[in-house]
Design a binder for these strands. Structure first.
Lengths: 182, 182
DNA sequence: CTTGGAAAGTCAACAAGGCTGACATAATGT
DNA sequence: ACATTATGTCAGCCTTGTTGACTTTCCAAG
């Protein structure tokens, strides 16, 4: 099974998995092996990234979907369901189930819009804010420790690569969040 | 609670969410705002990261779980179910369901171990290798483009931060994979 | 004022992919 | 002989995603 062709169709840039010093020292960071390490780093790091909030959520019978909703409601207080839908990239039925649970638990408040009464403006209740802070602090703690360990130059690179990975549409969303909430 | 202490346990470093320039210019990259941007970057980038393989998988009736299994079987041909269990961090029942599907589709072969006949050695079939390459190329293509756009210094930082985010146990796994498969 | 369409909510049904618990089988090690 | 290990499997449950169909509310254009 393609033992000889592990590198496959590397589009002329990746130098094959094996040779770490494949002759040309330029663009070594673009070898298939380097790229694959990046892929695996994303996989393992994302596991770690969600681990701390997940523990907190589990004890309250909530899941990652609830965390995401809480995060972005906190980020943009008074946001509408439609906005949240776009940000989270799920269907309204999925989101609605999550929001119903959060409202039932007294963590989120849904108020009819002032200008357009069809809209619902979502905000965290004081209880919701408490949970948000707990989740956020857990996640930020890990991220901050990683930042501190890696240093400012590494952090800049980290963000650069992540942003470059996003589709233009997603990147636009990500950046507009930074403006609004920042 | 702790309205005045939004930064919480920032160990005297994060300056609170609002003030991007909280007075001391050193360690600016550790402000809550910077850290939060990193968190959101992880969220959006991970969506992008999985989008391409997901499209390919969908057309074959497979999911992300199958991709992960295929990836690590490709990475460590002949690996056992137990090893895979540890790497993926799921239960054997979950993994078994996935493996059964992959074997039924003729993508993975499970052979009784030579030394220890209780074990099953897992390898990709030629068909499985074809699919692996398609998935891998899609994902690597995006990653490679991001690497190229960001440059080698950024890539080094990217990997540093991701590794620093992992728990020691996960990091050990990640690094031992690099040795073995590289 | 009526009507079209947007925003939101809801019900039903389904699938993927996690989980636990219980149990079977075969092989290994003591 | 016996306990342990590696694996597989059945049954059932949960979360979180999906589609489709339908209703209610409301704004805005005709």
């Amino acid at each position: 099974m393609a033992e000889a062709d592990k590198t496959g169709i590397t589009a002329g840039l990746g130098q094959g998995a094996a040779p770490a010093a494949g002759g040309t020292e330029q663009l070594l960071f673009l070898t298939d092996e380097q790229v694959r390490k990046g892929i695996e780093a994303m996989f393992f790091a994302y596991r770690a990234f969600t681990a701390d909030p997940d523990r907190i959520l589990e004890s309250r019978g909530l899941g990652r979907a609830h965390h995401r909703a809480i995060h972005f409601i906190h980020r943009s207080p008074g946001t509408t369901v439609s906005n949240l839908l776009i940000t989270l990239g799920v269907t309204k039925q999925s989101l609605n189930r999550v929001l119903r649970a959060l409202i039932a638990e007294g963590l989120v408040e849904s108020r009819v819009g002032r200008h357009d009464k069809r809209e619902r403006n979502l905000t965290l209740t004081s209880q919701g804010a408490v949970l948000e802070r707990a989740l956020s602090e857990a996640q930020r703690g890990r991220m901050r420790a990683a930042y501190r360990a890696a240093g400012p130059v590494a952090v800049a690179g980290f963000r650069q690569v992540l942003e470059a990975m996003m589709d233009p549409e997603l990147r636009r969303q990500y950046q507009s969040l930074s403006e609004v909430g920042g």
